[in-house]
């Protein structure tokens, strides 16, 4: 039985976009925590930690997100850990986001000029106080535009988890298409919804970037 693409189908797709958003938020918050730890480890004074974090970033950036997904879904299942698709999806996207955010933030921390370290050290601040009051506030300003830019990539990359059966936006489109055989209509709607999520974020990133150059600290 072939269904027509009507309002019900549209609403089904639209509602499934919430899982795209949920996955993005999970990946952003968990990945943000990973990324922060990785960034600090990458600029640590202890070489073994630096190397370890560097290797981890190399791994995450050098492997397709799909492989991270398969590893956490099928791989862990073989090891006896049977994760629900949603959890496996959340984990793999968080690992992916953590790797990239960690590298973005490492770059931001390192682009704070070295004299800022010297000046704050000379004022008897501890290393932790230097980070908290002098280095990180400046790094955050530098890191904001590329971080927001990365969120756009993240939203689009959540589509990959449709492969293990999580019904988010892309998978919902697929299901409706299978029932209606109106791929053009269906995927145009799906694409439009992605666009409506991503475009405002891109605009924000661009505005932040302009603001960074023209703006005043504060």
């Amino acid at each position: 039985m072939i269904r027509q693409f009507g309002i019900d189908e549209f609403i089904f797709i639209l509602l499934s976009a919430r899982w795209t958003l949920v996955l993005t938020l999970i990946a952003l918050s968990l990945g943000g925590v990973f990324g922060f730890v990785i960034a600090l480890t990458r600029v640590s004074r202890f070489a073994p930690l630096r190397l370890l974090a560097g290797a981890w970033i190399g791994l995450v950036q050098g492997v397709p997100v799909l492989m991270l997904l398969f590893l956490s879904y099928f791989g862990l299942a073989l090891a006896g850990l049977d994760l629900p698709p949603m959890i496996a999806a959340g984990i793999s996207l968080s690992l992916y986001a953590g790797g990239f955010l960690g590298e973005i933030w490492r770059g931001a921390i390192q682009s704070v000029p070295h004299p800022q370290w010297e000046a704050s050290a000379a004022l008897a601040l501890t290393r932790a106080q230097q980070y908290r009051y002098v280095i990180l506030p400046q790094a955050v300003r530098i890191a904001t535009p590329p971080t927001v830019g990365f969120v756009v990539q993240l939203v689009k990359n959540t589509a990959i988890v449709s492969i293990i059966g999580v019904v988010e936006l892309a998978r919902a489109g697929n299901l409706i298409n299978n029932a209606t055989f109106q791929p053009f209509k269906v995927f145009a709607v799906v694409a439009l919804i992605y666009f409506c999520i991503c475009w405002p974020i891109s605009l924000l990133a661009r505005r932040l970037e302009r603001g960074m150059h023209a703006g005043r600290p504060g």
Binding site: P115, Q116, E118, A119, A122, L123, A124, P137, Q138, G218
Partner: peptide, 16 residues
């Protein structure tokens, strides 16, 4: 360092 201040050629104020 609490007892010894230093001022640099390039000021190094905290811009934020």
């Amino acid at each position: 360092r609490k007892d010894v201040g230093i001022v640099f050629q390039s000021y190094n104020l905290f811009p934020h």
